[in-house]
Design a protein around this nucleic acid. Structure first.
Lengths: 210, 210, 210, 210
DNA sequence: TATGAATGAGCGTTCATTCAT
DNA sequence: CATGAATGAACGCTCATTCAT
C-alpha cells in the first residue's frame, strides 16, 4: 500500500508471530482495522485511525506491526486461514458422500466467509493486489485451491486445478456481486451458485476409466 | 480565508473536449491514467504522476478534469460504454439466432473487454466502490445488465434480471481471476465460461408456456 | 477517493494545550504567525511559513491547529481577550471616579493594545472579515463594546450602545492610522483621541433626570 | 498582493494610461473586479475570475493590466480620485461659508464615498497595505489630507496636518464600522461623525492672532 | 513496554501569468 | 488585438513512521 519502497519495511509481524497473533492488543488492532475497512474503506484506513479505534497508541501499533501493509496482510492471512479450515473440514466430512453434497459444502463455506463482511473482503482483495507478494497469504490461497482441486481429483476430474480455480473464481464473483447489492439471503444465493458450479462441472473433462 | 467548502468538486469533465487539441490532451491524460493503474495501481495513481506521464502540466490536467476522481470516473465511463456497445451489438446480431450463439457472443464481448487490461479493470472496479455514486457510470452499469436481461427475457427466462446479474458476476469473476493469473488465451477461457453460464441457464426458471 | 467534503475543518484548536511542551509549541506557532503578519502581511502568511518560523514541522502545526484559519482565529481571540481584560479592569477601577478619568483609562487601554503591533492588528481585522464567523471571537468583540456601553450607561447616556460603537470605532480609526504612519508616541495620540471622544460624548444624548 | 517579486511586474497600466482608463474593456474589468471584491472578497479575487466576469479573456486582461496588483491599484486610484474631487469641490464651495458648513460638506463627501460600497473600500484598504507603494495612489491620499489640511489652515488651526489626519482617520473608522454593521442611514451617521469631528476641532490648537 | 508529539515527503489543487494561434 | 490552453510554483493539508520520554 505504502510507496516508500526505499526503507525496508518487512511485512512479517515484528514479534514472534504466534505470540503476536494471540495478543489482546493485536486483536484489538485487527478488529479496528476491519471495522474501518468495513465502514469507510481503504482510503480512510490509516494507521492513526486504526490505533485510535483500537484504543491503542500509534506507538503500540508499530510495536506489533511493522507497518500499515502488515495489518492488511495479517487480516488477509486470518481470513484465509479460517476459510481454508472450513474448506478442509467440508472436504473431510464429505469425502465419502455423494459429490453433490461435497460441492454444496464447499459452496456453503465460501458463502459463509465471503457474504459475511463483504466490504472487508472486497477491500482486502483489492489491497492484496497492490501489496508486495506475501508468501504466507499466497500459500494459503494456493492451499484453498489445492483443497478444492483435491476434492475434484478424487472424483475423477482430469483437470482438477483448472476446475478448482474456475469454481473458486465464479463463486467469488457471484458472492461479491451479491454482497455489493446488499443481498443477505444465503439460501437463494447458494442455490444459484450451485447451479453455476454444477453446470460447469457437469461438462468438465473426466479421466477416462477403462 | 480558505475556500474549501465553498466549491464542490464535480466529477463531470470541466470542458467538453471539443477541439482536436483538447481531445488529444484528454486522451493523453486518460491513457496515462490507465497506464499508471495498470503498472502501479491505485496508490501511486496521483494527479501529478498522471499529468507527468501524459506529458501535460498539472494545470492542464485540472483544466480538463475537476479532480482525481473525475479521471477515474471518465475511465470507468468509457470502458463501460465500450462494453455496452459491444453487448448491444452482440444482442442485436444474434436476436434471431440460436440462444447458444447469443450467449457465446455475450461472453466473447465480456472477455474481449475484461481480459484486455485486467489490472485496469480491477483497479477501476475497486475505485468505483470508493467514489461518490456517479449517475452516468451507474446507469451504464445498469444498462449492461438490462441488455443481458432483455436477451434472457426474450428467450423465456422468468427471472431475467437475476440471471443477468449472476451471469455477469460469474463471468467477471472468472475473467478477473484469469487475468490475475496472466491467462491470455481467450479460447480456453471462453469455453470454460460458456460451460458455467450454460450450466447455470439450463436450470434457470422459465416462463411456463401453455 | 478524495475525502474533502467529509471532514469539516473546525476552527477550534485541535488539542487543549495541556502540557508545558504543547503550550510551548502553540505559543511558538502563534508568535511566528504574528511575526509573519507583522513583517509580511496576510499573503505570505502560509502554514508552511508559520511552521518553519516557529521551528516546528508542518505536521506539528496541524496537530495543534486544524487549519490556517484557526491560527488567525486564535490570534484574534487572544488579542481580544487581553483587550477585554484591560477594558474591564479600567472600568472597574474607575467606577467611582470622575467620568473623564474613566474615559481616559478606556482610551489608554485601547492605545496600549492597538498601537503595539499595529500591522498585526490591521491584518487580523481584515482577516476576520474573510473568516467564517467564529462565535467566541465575535462574543469577545461584543463583550468589549458591552463593557464600554455599560460604562456609558452608568453615566447616564441614553444610547450607550451606539456611543460605545462609535467611540470604539473612532478610536480604532485614529490609532490604526497613527500606527500606519509609524507614530509611536502614545501621549500625543492619547491626547488627540481624548479630544475626539470627549467632544463626541459631550453632545451625546443623556437620560433626562427630573 | 502577489509575491513573485523576482519578475518585474510594473504596476502602471501598460498602455498609455489615459487611453487605458477610458477603454470599455478596462471599465468592464474594473467593474468586474469591484463586483468580486464586494461579493466575495480578496481571496476569490483572481485574475481569471475577473476576466470571466468582465466577459473578457484572460489575455485581454493582461493587455490592459500588467498584473493582478495593477487592477487593485487602479481601483484604488479611481476611488481616491473621485474622493479627492468631491473634497475639493466641497472645500471650494464652502471657502467663504461658516466653518461648520465646511466641516459638514467634508463629512458628507467622506460618507458618500465610504458608505457606498463599504466591502470594496475595506478590501482595497487592506490590499493597499500589502501592495508595493504606488506613487500615484499615495499622492492622491496625501492630496486628500492636504485638501482637508488647507481648509483647517485657512481657519486658523495651528497644526492643520495633524488635525487633517486625525479627522480623516476617525471619520473613516466610524464609517467603516457603520458599513460593517450594515448601517445605511447616512443622516444619523453624519450627525454622529459631526459630533466627534466638531468636538475634536473645538479643542484643537489655533494660531494666536495678536 | 507504552505513549503520543514530532516529522516531513508528498498529495490534491489553485491561480498568476505567458504565448502560440 | 483577442483568445484561452498551457504552465508550474506554491499552497493547505495528511499520514506513515520514528523516537524521546
Amino acid at each position: 500500500m505504502s510507496d516508500k519502497s526505499a526503507k525496508p519495511h518487512p511485512i512479517e509481524p515484528r514479534k514472534a508471530p504466534r505470540q503476536a497473533r494471540s495478543n489482546a492488543t493485536v486483536d484489538a488492532i485487527l478488529e479496528a482495522a476491519a471495522h474501518i475497512l468495513r465502514e469507510e474503506g481503504l482510503v480512510p484506513f490509516t494507521t492513526n485511525a486504526v490505533a485510535q479505534r483500537a484504543g491503542a497508541s500509534i506507538g503500540s501499533l508499530y510495536q506489533y506491526f511493522p507497518g500499515k501493509d502488515a495489518i492488511l496482510t495479517e487480516l488477509i492471512r486470518r481470513k484465509r486461514q479460517t476459510m481454508l479450515d472450513a474448506i478442509r473440514l467440508a472436504a473431510r466430512e464429505t469425502r465419502s458422500r455423494p459429490f453433490a453434497e461435497a460441492v454444496d459444502r464447499l459452496i456453503a463455506a465460501g458463502i459463509a466467509h465471503q457474504l459475511d463482511d463483504p466490504q472487508v473482503s472486497r477491500a482486502l482483495e483489492y489491497a492484496e493486489s497492490t501489496l508486495p507478494l506475501h508468501t504466507e497469504t499466497h500459500e494459503l490461497k494456493m492451499a484453498i485451491v489445492a483443497e478444492v482441486s483435491a476434492t475434484f481429483a478424487a472424483r475423477g476430474f482430469s483437470e482438477p486445478e483448472i476446475a478448482a480455480h474456475d469454481v473458486v473464481a465464479l463463486t467469488r464473483g457471484m458472492i461479491d456481486t451479491a454482497g455489493l447489492y446488499g443481498e443477505t439471503d444465503a439460501s437463494s444465493l447458494t442455490d444459484r451458485v450451485r447451479r453455476a458450479v454444477t453446470g460447469y462441472l457437469k461438462t468438465a473433462p473426466k479421466v477416462s476409466r477403462t
